[in-house]
Design a protein around this nucleic acid. Structure first.
Lengths: 159, 159
DNA sequence: AAAGATTGAGAGGTCAATCTTA
DNA sequence: TAAGATTGACCTCTCAATCTTT
């Protein structure tokens, strides 16, 4: 169960990380659902577009922003979001292989409504229980973890 | 984009949290897959059983341990893990409505093999980049967040 | 009637193969 | 031939309905 490479103190923190993420993200999803709004997956797409130059991105660019989703999955996701009228696809003139995904007015409005709910939850589960110095230390730790997770998985590292 | 309720410093930390979790969990999944081992979902089940009194739990008890999965989803998941020979189901004598899920020897062995790989990744992305005091502060923050996320979503809070 | 668990139908995801344009 | 994006087949998860036992 234990292992010399992962001392108990770090292991406890790791478990709390996994469980904490689950609890917190489930809570946000629940709040959105109860408000009759789409899920966080949709939010990620709307957010990525909202902050882009012309509130538009090509599928590839969108894929870079929406983690935890394959390119294929993103195609299906955009299909649904487009069917809901929140984005529209446009052919890319400079490179006709590409497709632009453009945020519509409805999409902008939906993003705002979702942010209302999302922000309220972030306030409750994070801002209200963590002071500024703690938030900074938290961010700092997570940035190092992200960085350490970036490089390729080391196979036969000992060889 | 910004909101008075969520100051920029906290919002940055929140984004790093979401992205960091994704990166880190993807890396662990990748390491398991490349070692030809099952996913973290299976690990959670094996781990919960491994640490239980008789290395056995009823479906309900298992469901409490395996977050991020509905009761129904757990039934299907256990179907597959059982088909792989890592657990077996047994009727519960004291309450014949219930089902025991029992860890097999193969299951114990698989858990150990998976932990090898999992621990190596935890070491790389967490232990090696965070000191003990930081890990403790990290755990502390996440525990407060978990706690804040626990109570029911507040509807009509202002009413 | 309620609790423990499973099943059928459907939503959403992935991989490999495909289509189109560069 | 390679790159951008989509499609087909398949896998996994969820909700509502169901079956069995209390």
């Amino acid at each position: 169960m234990t292992d010399v490479r992962v001392p108990e103190a770090w292991l406890d923190a790791w478990r709390t990380f996994i469980v904490g993420y689950e609890r917190v993200s489930c809570r946000v999803e629940r709040a959105l659902a109860e408000a009759g709004l789409p899920s966080l997956t949709w939010y990620d797409v709307l957010w990525a577009l909202r902050r882009s130059p012309n509130q538009a991105l090509r599928m590839g660019g969108l894929s870079d922003n929406v983690l935890a989703m394959s390119r294929t999955g993103l195609t299906r996701l955009v299909d649904r979001i487009e069917a809901a009228g929140l984005v529209r696809r446009e052919v890319c003139d400079s490179d006709r292989r590409g497709t632009w995904v453009v945020l519509t007015d409805e999409g902008r409005h939906m993003h705002a409504r979702m942010w209302e709910v999302y922000a309220a939850e972030i306030e409750r589960v994070f801002v209200s229980v963590v002071d500024c110095a703690e938030a900074e230390a938290f961010r700092n730790v997570l940035e190092r973890m992200s960085e350490a997770a970036r490089d390729p998985v080391a196979r036969d590292a000992a060889a």
